[in-house]
């Protein structure tokens, strides 16, 4: 047992050194690293996406468990669009080889490309639908390892509900431009498990107190994700 502890300590120390040396890339520029361009295209009518969080990782990392409780980092992203805690939490884990944040909001019809480089073979990606209480798009641990160099694959992303806030659609609770309400609030809770999002109801469909109109409704898939291996 003592020996194991020693090994773990050594591993932690080494990973700390790598972290200091390489910023958000835990593995440096090793020979086994691969680079991918990940493009997120917003296919909704009127749901801007918050700055996207992308994580390249191994099987030991999982941020989105359907039916499971959202972490604080995921809750913060889904309620306010702030991806900083999800990304800093990911960067602290040895199973994560690279993280990257989008540079800004992705409006409907727009797209953004981020680049990931590392040894991880799985991709997780998340971004809030900002005209909602706690809806987010996600790609959940999809396999990258089968892509040949310069090969592209396209996947569809659906909308999930973080389950950390009731779907009031009220002006006080929706942070996006349609309402301008409160974002993250850890005290405000709901059923506390992640599901597929049931959709926006809107004032036009008779939800009293909704600040959202019919233009904010959406159906799946809400985003097109284009992944290209570039090296």
């Amino acid at each position: 047992m003592k020996k194991h502890t020693g090994l773990i300590m050594t591993a932690l120390l080494l990973s700390t050194l790598f972290l200091q040396g390489c910023g958000e890339d835990h593995n440096g520029a090793g020979a086994s690293n691969r680079s991918y361009e990940v493009t997120v295209v917003n296919l909704t009518n009127n749901q801007p996406f918050s700055p996207v969080a992308t994580v390249m990782h191994s099987a030991a990392y999982q941020i989105i468990t359907l039916g499971g409780t959202a972490s604080i980092g995921l809750e913060r992203l889904a309620e306010s669009g702030d991806n900083s805690v999800l990304i800093s939490d990911a960067n602290a884990l040895p199973a994560v080889s690279h993280t990257a944040s989008g540079t800004g909001v992705i409006p409907p019809a727009a797209q953004e490309t981020v680049t990931l480089t590392g040894s991880g073979t799985l991709l997780t990606l998340a971004s809030m639908l900002v005209n909602s209480n706690d809806a987010f798009i996600a790609v959940n641990a999809i396999e990258l390892g089968n892509l040949a160099k310069n090969e592209t694959m396209t996947v569809s992303a659906r909308a999930y509900d973080a389950g950390t806030e009731g779907n009031s659609e009220a002006a006080s609770d929706v942070p996006g431009p349609a309402a301008g309400g409160e974002g993250f609030n850890s005290a405000r809770n709901n059923r506390n498990f992640v599901t597929v999002h049931p959709g926006i109801i809107s004032m036009d469909d008779g939800l009293a107190g909704s600040a959202l109109d019919e233009s904010h409704r959406f159906d799946n898939p809400v985003a097109k994700i284009i992944i290209k291996r570039i090296s």
């Binding site: 009127n46 036009d204 469909d205 019919e214 959406f218 159906d219």
Partner: peptide, 27 residues
């Protein structure tokens, strides 16, 4: 009429129709 504008003017996923339950009026 439900609306006179479209926010996303590129090809995108249809948000579905709203409809109503008034055959002789409504939006």
């Amino acid at each position: 009429g439900i609306t006179t504008s479209e926010n996303n003017m590129t090809v995108h996923i249809h948000r579905g129709v709203l409809g109503d339950n008034d055959l002789n009026g409504g939006a």
